[in-house]
Design a protein around this nucleic acid. Structure first.
Length: 485
RNA sequence: UCCCCUGUAGCUCAGCUGGUAGAGCGGGUGGCUGUUAACCACUAGGUCGGCAGUUCAAGUCUGUCCGGGGGAGCCA
């Protein structure tokens, strides 16, 4: 009777899929299996079938669990193990648990392989499974965003994105920065860094009105509210209390821009440092960039080689160059002088007072200096109200970090910490000082030189992976007219 | 938002100056004792993005709408 229960009852049955209930630290990842030796030990793997090559007496399957780029090759000796029924049901995409003996592989493309003798199919994958063994276009994969992380490239992007994300936190944490969660809903009209998504609980079909206009005092927050376009102003609040802080969260822009570099919803990193001038800001930015590049290249070696080989030739060389080169410093005025004497023809002519176009930025970093460049001290007219005014009264303490292949990757500044000067700037730009009362207060009580910078997370993922389109480096891209998944 | 390109089988594409469709891959079936983008044979699969127009005749020409891509602007 005991035997019967053990082998027939689902409650007592213990078969080789028992590991499904194991805690995570007891599970084996394919990444670790591939790095171990084929010593003939018995192991169980869980994963998805990438491909099957079947013949009369031998069947090869490749299994992935997403832990690394390479698949584990499973070989079934059909003369020894009667697994024909299982093998017939297995196709690309199926989920399986396979038990077998890990041995050294006589084949060329792998060191070890699994001699499988038990297979459990957890989920079959019918013939209309859209992913083939061959390459798909990224455009097609975007249409099946629920399946695309099962491809080599998107899985590799996901791992690199994870490493970059962790590396960023690691850098700041190791340097004593406090991670601050700034609000996603902003009722202040002070950010002014682009078109905003409105957040409301009002009935849009029939909104309450007062004097012919929508009455926002009836709205959820009692006033007009939007999704945030930047956490910087709030980060400054915490920097002037905790000294060094950073934000790392989602940001929203409702701009009608349809490019390979823009998203309506993206993640942004914004460190803010008190007792820090523009020079300290630049040094931190350089150290930061080099740190996260090193961290990612060290932890995602295999994925990075994949990108170098299949996505962007010369990627590793270009990243290594940035990592090992001291960043060149140049003022905006000097940069304009360089561009004016350049032999290259630009679509947009440059002159002092105009913003640098991406063609100018690329020229500076790729042709003139062939390496990372930090441009500083831009005309105040082309920069934001909060940037510290230089003594010349014409330029501000702003900086842009430019890198080859991309152009601007980081933008930052020293913030205006003089109450009177900030007030003057607000008036010059016809901004209402009442909207900035708390921001001005930071300059009224214990004001301190402080600086910060911002970078778009997806931009850095794009830069590090070499991926052409920003929509392929975020799991579920939000762009104009697109929010499926 | 502007400029350029593009939409043909599940995927990637070919289809010249108008005469109602092809390949490779993928799928299915069969074969193959170690494959690795496996291989060999056979086979199914398409109102050529939608609508309108020119024409005896439109995948092909024209208009328009929709989708996709590249570049620019805005920006991160």
């Amino acid at each position: 009777m005991a035997w019967f229960f053990k082998h027939q009852s689902p409650f007592f049955k213990i078969d080789f899929t028992e590991k499904l209930c194991y805690p995570i630290h007891m599970k084996t990842r394919i990444k670790d299996i591939l790095q171990s030796s084929g010593d003939g030990r018995e192991i169980t793997v869980e994963g998805w079938i990438r491909t099957k090559r079947d013949s009369k007496s031998v069947c090869f399957m490749e299994v992935t669990d997403g832990s690394c780029l390479k698949n584990l090759q499973v070989i079934i000796d059909k003369n020894v193990f009667d697994l024909t029924r299982e093998i017939e049901k297995i196709s690309t995409g199926a989920s399986v648990v396979i038990q077998g003996k890990l041995v050294a592989s006589p084949g060329k493309n792998q060191n070890v392989e699994l001699q499988g003798h038990k297979i459990k199919i957890l989920g079959e994958s019918p013939e209309d499974y859209p992913l083939q063994k061959k390459r798909h276009s990224f455009e097609f994969l975007r249409e099946i965003a629920h399946l695309r992380p099962r491809t080599n490239t998107i899985a590799a992007v996901s791992r690199v994105r994870n490493a970059l994300s962790f590396g960023i936190h690691k850098f700041f944490q190791e340097n004593g920065f406090i991670y601050v969660h700034t609000p996603l809903i902003s009722a202040s009209d002070a950010e002014g860094a682009g078109e905003m998504f409105q957040v409301t609980t009002l009935d849009l079909e029939n909104p309450p009105k007062a004097q012919g206009k929508v009455d926002y005092t009836k709205d959820f927050f009692g006033k007009k509210a939007n999704l945030t376009v930047s956490g910087q102003l709030e980060a400054e609040i915490y920097a002037t209390a905790l000294k060094n802080v950073y934000t790392f969260g989602p940001t929203f822009r409702a701009e009608n821009s349809n490019t390979s570099r823009h998203l309506a919803e993206f993640w942004m990193i914004e460190p803010e440092m008190a007792f820090c001038t523009l020079e300290g800001d630049m040094n931190t930015a350089e150290e930061f960039l080099k740190y996260i590049l090193s961290y990612t290249m060290e932890t995602c070696t295999e994925d990075m080689e994949f990108f170098d080989k299949f996505i962007q030739k010369g990627l590793l060389e270009s990243l290594t160059h940035v990592k090992e080169t001291s960043f060149t410093h140049i003022t905006y005025t000097e940069a304009v002088r360089e561009l004016e004497k350049a032999s290259a023809k630009f679509d947009f002519p440059i002159s002092w007072g105009k913003d640098l176009q991406s063609e100018h930025e690329k020229y500076l970093t790729e042709i003139v200096f062939n390496g990372p460049v930090i441009v500083t001290d831009y005309p105040k007219g082309i920069k934001a109200f909060y940037m510290k005014l230089n003594d010349d009264g014409k330029t501000v303490r702003a900086m842009d970090v430019l890198v080859p292949r991309l152009g601007e990757i980081i933008g930052g500044s020293e913030r205006e910490n003089d109450y009177a000067k900030l007030l003057t700037r607000l008036h010059e730009l016809h901004l209402n000082e009442k909207d900035y009362w708390w921001y001005l207060d930071l300059r009224k009580y214990g004001s301190v030189p402080h600086s910060g910078f911002g970078l778009g997370f997806e931009r850095i993922v794009q830069y590090v992976t070499g991926m052409q389109n920003i929509r392929d480096v975020i799991p579920f891209p939000r762009t104009v007219k697109t929010a499926e998944f």
